[in-house]
Design a protein around this nucleic acid. Structure first.
Lengths: 192, 192, 192, 192
DNA sequence: TATGAATGAGCCTTCATTCAT
DNA sequence: GATGAATGAAGGCTCATTCAT
C-alpha cells in the first residue's frame, strides 16, 4: 500500500517478499529438522532457488540470526519490562526466564545450536550473548541487591543453564518449565 | 557356553580382541570428535576395517551404548553405594549426581547425543533410562522420605535436567558443577 | 549520424559512459583475475548491474575484444611504424615483437585466452589474427626480402609462438623477454 | 596370472584394475576436456563412483601426476640416452626436446596446466620440474661445454619456453615442431 | 570373520544468464 | 536502458553402508 510513498525501493518488494518467505521457511524447517537443515530444503520450502538463499543470507548463521532476531529482541525487551512491572526482582527474573524458555521451547533445535561448538554458529552465539547477557545481568543484579537472589551465579551460567534445560525433544515425562522452576528455586538467596 | 570347545573359541578371542580395541578407539574418538565421528575414523584408530565395526556394532547407537556401558553400570552402582554410605539421602543424591556429571563432562558430546531426538540415538537413550532411572528414582524417593528432597521432581526430570546442564563446549565462564549445584539446591525440600 | 537530434543522444551519452566504465573495469579485473573473471566482479567494479554488462557485451569474447581493441590497434600501427623507422627489417620485427610482448605480458591471462581452444574465445582469436596477422606478414616479408629473416616461418607461427612464450605466471626464473629473444634469434636467416 | 604367487595383495587386483581404468579414463578425458575436467566425468568414463576417484587420488594434482608419470619418467630417461647416443650435445638436446614435445602435444591441455598458476597444479608443476629440470640442465651444460649451445639460457627457460610453444589447439597453420625448431636454432651458440 | 574398495546420495557453493520492474 | 534479484545447472567433497574377496 505504501509501496509508492517513497521512491527508492521498487523491485525491493519482490526481494523483501522473498526474504520474508525465506525467514518463514527457515523457521519452519529449523523446527522440523534443526538449524542444520540443508540449505536446499529451506530454499524449496520458500519456493526459491538456493542462490536466493545465499544472496540474502551468505552464511547459515546469518539466516539463523535473522530468523530469531525479532524474538531475541522481544526477549530482551521483555527483560526490561519485567523489571519495571514485576512485584519483586525475583519475580521479574522468573517472568523473563519464562519468556526465554517459551522462545527456546517453541524453536526446537535452537537451544542445541546455541550450545553447539560448531564454529559455524559462533555468530549466532555471539548475537545471543550480546543481546541477552546484559539483560540477564541486570535482572540478576537487581535480585541480588534485593537480597532475593544468590550472588554467585553469573548471567552466562543462568542463560546457558536454562538453555541446557530446554534442549531435547518434547517428552511427556519431562516438563521443561518444571525443571527450570527447580533451577530458579535454586537461585534464591538462602535465608540468612 | 563353551562354544564348541574346539576351534571356534580361538576365533572368539580374535573377535573379542577386536571388539575391545574398537571400544577403546571409539571412546577416544568420541571424546575428540563427538559421538557422531565418522565410522572410518574409529575403524582406523582401532586398526580394523570399517566392515569390522559394522559387524560388531550394526548401528552407531550400539557402539555408543557399548562404549559407555561400563561407565553407566558404574554410575548405577555408585548410586546404590551412595545411598548406603552417605550421611543423608540428599548427600547421597549429590554424590551420585557428581558421578553422573563427571561421566558426562568427560565424554564430550555424549550429553548432547543423549538429548538428541535423532532416532539413531533412541537405543542409547533407552539404555540410559533403563539403567539409570531406577537408581535416580530410589535416591529421590529416599530423599523425599527423609523430607530432604522436594517431592514433585521425577527421576527423568532430574536426569535430563542435569544432562542438559552438561551440554555444550567447555567454557571458562560456565561452570557445569556450579549450575548443577544450583539445580540441586532447587531440589531441596522447602522448609515447612 | 545525429540520432534524432533530440532526446536520444542524451541516452547515448549515458550508455557510452557506461560502456567506457565497463571497459576500464574489465581491463582492471582481467589483469587482477584473468579474462575468465566473474561477470559480476566486472559489473561491480564498473558500478553497474550485470544486466548492463550483457547489454553492451553479449558474450565474454565481445568484452575481451573491446577491452583490448585499442591496444591491438596500437600494436598493429606499431608494426607499420617500426617498418618505416627501424634501421633494418629485422630490427623492425624485433621492435614490433617487443610491443606485442609488452601487451601480452601486462595483460595477464590474455596470452592464455588467445591460445585457448574454448569456443567462447574464438571471436577473440579471430580478431587478433585479423588485425595482427597482416602486420606480421609484412614484417616477415620485408625481413625475408632483405635476407635477414628465414623464409620458412609464417606470421601465424611467429605470433602464436611468441604468444605461447608469454603464457604463464610471472616467475623470477623465467624471463619472457629472454626466451622471445632466443626465438627471434632463431628467426634470423642463416648465413649463406 | 601371478596373482597367487605372493600372499599380500588379493583384493588389490580389483583396486589395481580400477586405478588403471581411472588412469586410462583420466588420460582420455584430459585430452578431450583438459586437465580441469570434472571429477565426475572421469569417474563416469572409468565406470566407477566419484568416491573411488577420491580414494585413489585425493587431489586432482595427484591424478594428473599419476596419469603422466610414466611419460615423464620416459622423457627423463630419453634425455640421458640422447646424451649418450647422439652425435653431438646439440643433437642430443634436439632429440630430447623432440620427445618432450611429442609428450606435450599428444597430451593436449597438459602444457597449459603446467603453465597454470592455479595452486591446484602446484604439485604437478613441482613434479615436472623435479624430474625434468636436472635432465635439461645436463643437456644444456653439455652443449655449452661443447660450444654448441649459447650459455645464457637456463633449463627452466628452455622447458617453459618449449612448453609455451606447445600450448594451444592443433591447427594446420601452426606447426609446433617447426616453431620449436626455430627456438632451438636460437639456442645455438653464435659463431665467434 | 575381517577387510577395505566401491558406491552414490547428499550437501555445499559459485556463477552465468534471464527477466520483471 | 539499467538494475540486480532469482534461478538452477555444475562441480567439489564427504561419508555411511554394502559386499566381493
Amino acid at each position: 500500500m505504501t509501496d509508492e510513498t517513497g521512491r527508492a525501493p521498487r523491485r525491493r518488494a519482490d526481494a523483501r517478499r522473498n526474504e520474508s518467505a525465506l525467514l518463514d521457511a527457515a523457521a519452519a524447517v529449523f523446527v522440523a529438522s534443526g538449524v542444520e537443515a540443508p540449505v536446499r530444503d529451506i530454499a524449496a520450502k520458500a519456493g526459491v532457488g538456493v542462490g536466493t538463499v545465499y544472496r540474502h543470507f551468505p552464511t547459515r548463521a546469518d539466516l539463523v540470526v535473522a530468523v530469531y532476531r525479532h524474538q531475541v529482541e522481544a526477549c530482551a525487551v521483555a527483560g526490561e519490562e519485567a523489571l519495571e512491572r514485576a512485584d519483586s526482582p525475583f519475580e521479574a527474573l522468573r517472568r523473563w526466564i519464562d519468556v526465554f524458555v517459551d522462545f527456546l521451547v517453541t524453536k526446537h533445535g535452537l537451544a542445541g545450536a546455541l550450545q553447539s561448538d560448531d564454529p559455524q554458529f559462533q555468530v549466532l552465539h555471539a548475537y545471543f550473548l550480546d543481546r541477552l547477557l546484559p539483560v540477564g545481568t541486570r535482572l540478576l543484579e537487581a535480585g541480588v541487591a534485593a537480597g532475593e537472589v544468590r550472588d554467585d551465579v553469573t548471567a552466562i551460567e543462568l542463560m546457558r543453564g536454562v538453555g541446557g534445560l530446554c534442549i531435547g525433544p518434547a517428552d511427556d515425562r519431562y516438563d521443561v518449565r518444571h525443571t527450570v522452576g527447580v533451577f530458579l528455586d535454586g537461585m534464591r538467596a538462602p535465608a540468612r
